[in-house]
Amino acid sequence: MGRFWTLMTHLHSLAGPSVMLVFPLYASVMAIESTSKVDDEQWLAYWIIYSFLTILEMLLQPLLEWIPIWYDIKLALVAWLVLPQFRGAAYIYDTFVREKLRKLGVSTKPRTTLASSPSKEKEKNKFVDFISPKKGRHEAY
Score class of each variant (00 low, 15 high):
71 Y>G: 13
20 M>P: 04
65 E>L: 09
95 T>V: 12
4 F>N: 13
6 T>Y: 13
12 H>E: 13
134 K>Y: 00
81 L>P: 10
113 T>Y: 01
108 T>Y: 03
59 L>P: 00
139 E>K: 15
49 I>K: 02
83 L>V: 14
97 V>M: 01
77 L>E: 04
45 A>T: 01
114 L>F: 13
128 V>E: 05
40 D>P: 03
131 I>N: 02
58 M>T: 07
39 D>H: 07
7 L>H: 10
66 W>L: 11
69 I>C: 11
64 L>H: 00
97 V>I: 13
24 P>L: 01
10 H>E: 13
87 R>V: 04
118 P>W: 01
77 L>I: 14
63 L>V: 10
87 R>C: 12
125 N>A: 05
139 E>M: 11
45 A>V: 00
98 R>C: 07
57 E>F: 10
84 P>D: 14
128 V>D: 01
17 P>C: 04
93 Y>V: 06
115 A>Q: 08
5 W>D: 14
47 W>E: 03
46 Y>L: 02
13 S>Y: 12
43 W>G: 06
80 W>Q: 12
97 V>R: 00
49 I>A: 09
99 E>A: 15
116 S>P: 01
5 W>N: 15
112 T>V: 09
24 P>M: 03
129 D>G: 07
82 V>F: 07
47 W>G: 07
65 E>Y: 13
44 L>R: 09
4 F>A: 14
82 V>Y: 04
67 I>K: 04
47 W>R: 02
44 L>S: 11
140 A>E: 15
109 K>M: 01
105 G>I: 03
50 Y>D: 09
131 I>V: 06
78 V>Y: 01
7 L>N: 14
40 D>T: 05
35 T>Y: 10
24 P>K: 06
1 M>W: 12
33 E>S: 02
78 V>Q: 10
128 V>H: 04
13 S>E: 12
97 V>N: 01
46 Y>F: 14
48 I>G: 01
94 D>Q: 15
135 K>E: 07
81 L>S: 09
1 M>K: 07
92 I>N: 04
132 S>T: 05
116 S>M: 06
6 T>S: 15
14 L>K: 02
74 K>T: 12
40 D>A: 12
127 F>P: 02
53 L>R: 09
88 G>A: 07
109 K>D: 13
87 R>W: 03
25 L>D: 00
134 K>A: 10
93 Y>E: 04
